[in-house]
């Protein structure tokens, strides 16, 4: 079902498929005996079947600083070996003080983030007050979790927001609906590099300038060490003054001119 996500490029993809096949052949844990009795069920169950090693080639990461949170995303629209677009904005402004950086299958990504955005707006229109960042994160998780056992959306999300009483916050939500509040986080192949850079250089209460320096370090590391590195990135920030685009980091101009 998810074969189309497996990349052609990284050599260890072959190992991934082997591991995945083992998942269906060999029950190593005694608690799995029920699944072993019903191998057919195991194959059709959406979660059991979900490719556990789905790592997208996209790079989305974010961090929380002093009075702000930021999200960075690559801007490449890739299908298989083709780059369709290099200025695709993958960070949506949810409402005045929320950002949602998304990676994953592009159709799911657009559909799901728009769905969340519209519902966050609907809540605000009905009740006259916006959802807090935590509330929006929990709503998003709920929607992903319900979809998970029906027809899952393959989207990984970083939700950044600013609340008056709470300050800036960042939430990690992956496609199987694991929710966690974090200070720094990343998705995709870029995460191997950006997480390492952030572990080394991040400290709580960073200024915007320090944070942007760190973001540039991450991007530089991705560009120099990742075979499938995307050329362009967008950086968005949310603070007390609202959510906005902060800067682009482009090494290739988009040819389509869209």
């Amino acid at each position: 079902m998810y074969k189309k996500h497996e990349t052609l490029i990284m050599p260890f993809t072959i190992v991934e498929i082997q591991i995945r096949n083992e998942l269906f052949c060999k029950a190593t844990h005694k608690r799995q005996s029920n699944a072993r009795l019903f191998p057919s069920l195991r194959r059709t169950h959406p979660v059991a079947e979900a490719d556990l090693l789905k790592v997208s080639m996209e790079c989305v990461f974010g961090l929380v600083g002093n009075g702000f949170a930021l999200v960075v995303a690559d801007t490449s629209a890739v299908h298989s070996i083709l780059v369709h677009k290099s200025n695709e904005d993958k960070i949506m402004v949810l409402d005045s003080h929320k950002l949602i950086g998304a990676s994953g299958e592009s159709g799911d990504r657009v559909q799901f983030t728009e769905y969340i955005q519209k519902n966050v707006h609907l809540y605000q229109f009905r009740n006259g007050i916006p959802l807090t960042t935590a509330a929006a994160a929990n709503f998003t998780r709920g929607e992903l979790a319900t979809a998970l056992r029906k027809s899952p959306y393959f989207v990984n999300l970083l939700l950044a927001g600013y609340d008056k009483e709470i300050g800036p916050s960042l939430y990690y939500i992956d496609y199987i609906a694991t929710l966690h509040k974090i200070e720094k986080g990343a998705f995709g192949y870029g995460s191997y590099f950006s997480l390492a850079m952030m572990d080394r250089h991040y400290h709580p209460g960073m200024t915007v300038d320090e944070a942007i320096d760190l973001v540039d370090k991450c991007i530089m590391e991705i560009r120099s060490r990742l075979v499938v590195a995307p050329p362009n990135f967008v950086i968005k920030i949310v603070d007390k003054d609202g959510a906005r685009e902060y800067a682009w980091r482009e090494s290739v101009k988009d040819v389509s001119g869209a």
């Binding site: 998942l23 190593t28 979660v47 556990l52 694991t178």
Partner: peptide, 8 residues
Amino acid sequence: MSIFEYNG
């Protein structure tokens, strides 16, 4: 790798 061992 079992799904029980996904997150640890």
